[in-house]
Design a protein around this nucleic acid. Structure first.
Lengths: 219, 219
DNA sequence: GTGTATATCTCGGGG
DNA sequence: CCCCGAGGTATACAC
């Protein structure tokens, strides 16, 4: 990784156009060739950037970064303040815990949590407007579509509403009931769910993680 | 801005849990106090981060960053390789060109592109659930709500659906037709649009930019 | 502060 | 390769 502190102006032409007037900034060049310009505020977003793969040409204080998509970043450097390089090596990567995928795995393994007698038909059940997280049958054999979220918000209800709209076009499934399953559900999402006849279920992630799939019916 | 290259392990506990095993990384600390951990690939996203406002405590090679929301980032440093600071000053900020607002300006100036005989009623027509990008009247004088996007996706159809729902409460407007105008429209968005009786229009931005508003009716 | 809409969104997965 | 959905989305703006 190369880190350059420099007084520079930056121009981007690609998906849109963007211009940065001259100022002192950090230019970060990573081992994979990607480039990011950072100001001294806002942890997350660079002011300008180019992702790999791309081509960096340094010529007389003007750096040109181009990529196969035809995007172009031009860095005009008027004063170098610092320039250093370090070999960081390969990163072992990030372990995450508690994302939606985990919740989906756990619920797929223990559909009883969603309702007594529930059994899983399949995960990621496809529709014309995207896949439903879980499709189940309830104790009476009726189809139930489950949308899983870490945080239940209005968008989740909208999403489930779309799926139900299309699932109910299929006579082999209709009528399909809907459940929003989330670790927490905001009052507005709950209100909208009630209005649309969608059931809300708050799921305790830690509790669920403790349930072994083959022990749910044991005493 | 302080830049530290160090062999470190990182733990985040907050909206989810995330763990980074020990490796050499860049730790970036900005003037506003926010912290970002970068590996040597992927220009945009840090591996871990904490946005301002937060509190950074350095204690014996263990850095603890906490914020008011109760999130916590722990950086355990086993070896410092480099540690430098620079005063970057205030950044003048970024100028952008070619975002949705531009498309809206161009379509507002040339409503004929949306349909023969279309005329503009107003931009950002207010409703209870947010402003409609364009409200027009078609050749027959019927109201048409236009939602403008660079890329037409499902969210745009949902948005327009909400607007239409409320616009149709107004007897002076109802019935209101809907159009999604975008540079490109995804198949799922198109499917949902058809299902809801919303029209899709793909707009050529470059072509539109070439049209002069007062020349559309000239030969 | 909450809610809503945008983003050069990034990133990863599946067909 | 495109398409789609999740994200610790972040960020800006209106109410």
């Amino acid at each position: 990784m190369r880190l350059v502190i420099a007084k520079c102006a930056v121009d981007y032409e690609g998906r849109l156009g963007a211009h940065l007037p001259e100022a002192i900034r950090l230019i970060m060049i990573k081992a994979d060739g990607c480039v990011a310009i950072h100001a001294d505020g806002g942890a997350y977003k660079p002011l300008n950037w180019m992702n790999a793969p791309n081509l960096l040409i340094e010529h007389d204080g003007v750096w040109t970064v181009t990529n196969p998509a035809g995007e172009k970043l031009t860095i005009t450097i008027n004063e170098f303040i610092s320039d250093s390089s370090h070999d960081l090596g390969q990163d072992p990567g990030l372990d995450k815990d508690g994302v939606e995928a985990h919740l989906q795995e756990l619920l797929a393994a223990s559909p009883e949590v969603l309702g007594s007698g529930f059994r899983l038909v399949r995960r990621e059940y496809p529709t014309q407007v995207g896949p439903v997280d879980l499709l189940c049958r309830d104790a009476n054999g009726h189809a139930v579509a489950i949308e899983i979220k870490r945080r239940g918000e209005i968008a989740g209800i909208e999403q489930l509403t779309r799926y139900l709209e299309f699932l109910n076009h299929d006579p082999a499934l209709a009528p399909v009931q809907g459940i929003l399953a989330a670790q927490s559900i905001r009052p507005q999402a709950r209100a909208l769910a009630i209005d649309r006849g969608i059931q809300c279920l708050e799921i305790d992630y830690d509790l669920l993680r403790g349930i072994q799939p083959n022990q749910t019916s044991l005493f």
